[in-house]
Design a protein around this nucleic acid. Structure first.
Lengths: 248, 248
DNA sequence: GCAAAAGTGTTCCGACTACACCCATGC
DNA sequence: GCATGGGTGTAGTCGGAACACTTTTGC
């Protein structure tokens, strides 16, 4: 684990020289299209080197006076207009040589990426075309070759999304204010795939947890019996959060 | 890519100027003293400003050509000599003003901390006194006031440790090659506290998982019936890792 | 024998699974 | 009526919690 290489790896001072960094924030932004039952990830086309012409995760470099989280929200806001979302830090990728710009500049700057993961409400999310366009939702299975180490970041984010769904109420951050249990179930199916649980069991488990409030209203969507509309009750959730809770 | 930055935070250009970073690595290093049944965290005394005279988590700044993980291992190796350990990245703290050095230098440089969390084998860990001394294991309940935002990092690390113990085999990274189920249980008790599970139930659950190999040997420690010595079987663990596994 | 620690077994109960079945609506 | 989706119930099974009990050692 010694410090490897630079221009002269054997020079004694080399081992003590601190690296200078630019810090980037790259976002894995997910959304669920419940109509088509698809999990989508937001990609942008790069218009500059390096990796010009490649798709990549939306990212930016952190500015003076800006926190990492602020930067993450800024990237997001530059690409889509959305009011309801969940966002958290994912992982920091910082090995040397992960960005070709480092080599070009002969090792005096390193590029580090603090990745974030977000889940946004699909229905209200409108993409912001930045002139040249080049921004799109991709179904997870059809993601093309990505710039940098963004494939690694994406798979890390996907794993986190599935874990979070299982024991966190992040689904309610992107569902409408009131929703049916069918809506909720569809979202879970789109992310976790078929066969994670039977609908009626899913339903029973969620209702037993006690933080879903029946609004008393119903909604009728085409054929079939009208569904009850529920609301997520954050206070009730907080009180029972200590005990392990699995939505599976 | 603008070069030099303004010292006036209200200047419009400031908002677009990228921040320059030094990247630090701070480690939350845990160890379990099974004799005294205590969970310990490694702290070092700071001998320089800022926060001179305060205890802090061991940390360092990342050098040229050094990966984040390498830096984390280097900090650890500078403070203790140990062969068996588990280490992973924890979280990245990077808000502005988290390091007083930033203010002194008027926005020229930001200090970002990529924290890591480690669990090391207590029996073999020997602290490396660096002349002035000032390095010690602290029981978690007796940790003094810490430098920077290290309290936040520590509590984050403690949470991660407890989670990891529940569904990961990290305990076996710091137990001896062969160990008794009592040893294993003690480790869990020291970290999670009394009353996370009955010993006999803990025992039954772990054995049923099937990756603990009875060596056939026994050990007698003072009074009481001799205990069987077990070995962790990594191959057997890998095969059954897909199904959810809770050691609780 | 007795205390101490290891190890085994048993009972109770709640949770998840896998269904079968009833209900309300559009057409 | 009947297809469609919403909603309820139940029988079987698995696993954890609690606790009693047996085994093997040191003294």
């Amino acid at each position: 684990m010694p410090g490897k290489l630079q221009k002269n790896p054997d020079h004694p001072l080399t081992k003590l020289a601190l690296a200078d960094f630019k810090v980037g924030v790259d976002n894995v932004i997910f959304s669920v299209d419940t109509d088509q039952n698809r999990l989508l990830v937001l990609l942008v086309m790069r218009h500059q080197e390096p990796y010009m012409g490649y798709w990549s995760l939306p990212g930016t470099l952190v500015r003076q006076g800006e926190s990492l989280e602020d930067a993450a929200y800024r990237v997001l806001a530059e690409k889509i207009r959305v009011n309801h979302l969940y966002l958290e830090q994912l992982y920091t990728f910082g090995g040397p040589h992960r960005d070709p710009r480092e080599d070009a500049q002969a090792y005096d700057v390193r590029y580090l990426s603090v990745s974030h993961f977000a889940l946004v409400r699909f229905e209200e999310a409108t993409l912001i075309a930045d002139g040249v366009c080049g921004i799109a939702w991709y179904p997870l299975a059809q993601v093309p070759r990505l710039a940098f180490d963004h494939h690694q970041i994406l798979s890390y984010g996907y794993q986190r999304l599935r874990n979070k769904l299982e024991y966190s109420p992040i689904a309610f951050d992107v569902l409408p204010e009131v929703f049916t249990l069918g809506d909720l179930y569809q979202l879970y199916v789109a992310v976790l795939g078929e066969g994670f649980a039977d609908y009626s069991n899913f339903r029973a488990r969620l209702l037993k947890l006690g933080f879903l409030q029946d609004t008393g209203h119903k909604t009728s969507r085409g054929a079939g019996r009208p569904a009850s509309l529920y609301r997520f009750n954050a206070e009730a959730f907080a009180t029972c959060q200590d005990k392990p809770m699995v939505f599976i």
